[in-house]
Design a protein around this nucleic acid. Structure first.
Lengths: 231, 231
DNA sequence: GCCATGATCCAGTAATCTATTGAGAATATG
DNA sequence: CATATTCTCAATAGATTACTGGATCATGGC
């Protein structure tokens, strides 16, 4: 049923195919590279910026990026002495989201880790995307993007204002005093919105959290404002 | 802004989170395990059957299954001396499909591998899912499931007949002589439907291929007949 | 209890992957 | 052209993983 002939046998064909797909899964088989992908989902970054953000040495980040590039998950653009990395395909975000969804359903440790960090204080009330749209339509809430300014400019939720979390304490006056603020950042495992809520609450403001970030919002087929055009 | 205190720092939190998700991607970072997942998408299997199917030793297959189980991608059921493995969650199929879609878009080598095996003979005309539904409605074609009988019984496309590819040559009489046959098997990288087309063509029959298998069909939100109930 | 079967576990080797270091490209500036 | 900046590459050592063959475990039949 199987021979060792020169042309591909059925087994050799399957080996070759799964080997190819494994290039992708191997590239993603590292916490550091997953984090890199998660960051790049927000927009392109230089090697140096990425290394800083994920807490790795420059050389190490560069190595990880190389392996991502070999698997065609990221692409580069040179600008002077800087090299900007970006996701090679929006489908990369889909893979990451699928992995995340699976982890959330199957890995109880993830919930435990989150609870441990946040002191399982449910002071951090959250809002679903559908809920948010209804409340926004009713004018009940103010939507606030607390990511760095550059990320806001690269694309944000429709109607969102931008106050990076680092400036929030100083710019509270820009928010209507009685409004409920819905803060969001990069995505479900990004901490900036939690920090923002802490600041809001410390100043007696009402604040909720939206877990989704712009990549999730876009993946769900909802429109994103600014940044790369997309219909 | 960051300390080494006993409770989790922001960095330690992120490390812990991505580490958890990497359990999943690491479990999938092997061609053998990807193939196992692809086979299990068709239904549960014993260790022995799986080992045979993916061309690995029993011990090795068992090891791979253990690592998949540790990552919560598969689950087991014991039946006498047999242990049946199955996917722990339909979301596992979604992850695999997302990886496949990405590979098909980014990795040109995959196309090349397929072309090399099939001798890039486009004798294997294929049909899209939408196309098929229209043609089925018009009574233009006969839909044929060429997978092993057990897999057909575990769930098949609505209206499909079952003739395992190994029996096809002997059972051609069961197919209306003038009908165009649309053959499908497990999915895009399964070879059984290609073999079936070769047999059909050798007997002067008209045959097309549907790339999708039942897992893909179901993932696309289309109904599947028989097997585990699902609305 | 004893045996057969299916599966798991274990030890050892080879191969692969990761992080680190330091050297060295590529590019811009003066 | 010299120099600084940003990034990549090569070499190393340490850790992890893959596969094999053999021992062991769990279950069911006798």
């Amino acid at each position: 049923m199987s021979s060792d002939a020169a042309p591909l046998t059925a087994r050799a064909f399957k080996d070759a195919v799964y080997e190819q797909f494994a290039r992708i899964t191997k590239a993603l088989a590292s916490p550091v590279r997953l984090e890199i992908v998660d960051v790049l989902a927000q927009g392109e970054r230089t090697v140096d910026a990425l290394a800083r953000e994920v807490g790795q040495s420059l050389a190490n980040a560069s190595q990880h990026l190389r392996s991502l590039k070999e698997a065609r998950l990221v692409d580069t653009r040179r600008d002077g002495t800087f090299v900007h990395y970006r996701l090679a395909d929006p489908q990369v975000i889909e893979v990451w989201r699928a992995v995340r969804a699976l982890g959330e359903r199957q890995l109880a440790d993830i919930e435990r880790t989150v609870a441990a960090y946040l002191g399982d204080a449910d002071a951090f009330e959250s809002v679903t995307a559908d809920d948010l749209q209804r409340r926004l339509a009713d004018g009940e809430v103010v939507l606030l993007d607390v990511r760095p300014d550059a990320e806001y400019r690269a694309g944000h939720l429709p109607g969102a204002r931008s106050i990076p979390v680092g400036e929030l304490a100083d710019r509270l006056a820009e928010l209507p005093p009685d409004a409920t603020v819905v803060a969001y950042c990069r995505g479900p495992y990004c901490l900036m919105s939690y920090d923002a809520l802490a600041i809001l609450h410390a100043h007696g403001r009402r604040g909720l959290r939206l877990a989704e970030g712009p990549p999730d919002w876009r993946a769900a087929g909802r429109p994103v404002q600014g940044g790369p055009e997309r219909g």
